[in-house]
Design a binder for these strands. Sequence first.
DNA 1: TGTATGATTAAT
DNA 2: TTAATCATACAA
Length: 179
Amino acid sequence: MVKRESTGELIWGVIVETEAYSQIEEACHGYRRRSKSNETLFGSPGRFYVYLTYGIYHCVNLVTGRKDWANGVLLRSLAMPNESERIASGPGLLAKRFGLDRSYDNLEAKEANNLWLTSKPTEFKDNQIVRSTRIGISQAKNLRWRWYLQASRSISKRCKGDACPPISKAWFPIERDRQ
DNA sequence: TGTATGATTAAT
DNA sequence: TTAATCATACAA
């Protein structure tokens, strides 16, 4: 994910942890009703759905699937170059670091909007990705719809017994290419 | 109008 | 385990 600040500065990070939500399950904001607050989740895919949680933090999703059907991917953690490993580890911290709030809700993810996603900088093999149940929900706890990069120290929570290898510089090819 | 509840985090 | 903090949902 990349953001161009008003100053022109680029901030970006590699998405290392996500969760999926869908209208078919109780933990999804679109499960019960379509309303003003979750309208974005029912809208066009490719936009950001940003909401306030616990009155303090914001969470950022990318709307997926199709229009009129609530599907989204919660961005839970990013690994950022040249910053402390856990600066964006957790959905609230991620939104905070990127300065994202409700004013970004329903914004289409594209460079012209100064907030966008690019293809993953490094090919990650399937065996580098761990799947688990989702975090912080009270319903639909059985669904294993959380994924994270096993080798990242920047995820919010690690599964028991899951080791973490040293960080690879290959995650940050933009930095590498500049060097 | 009143009250309970989070897709969280940091501190105890 | 709990406080912080507020928009939303739902009951009355």
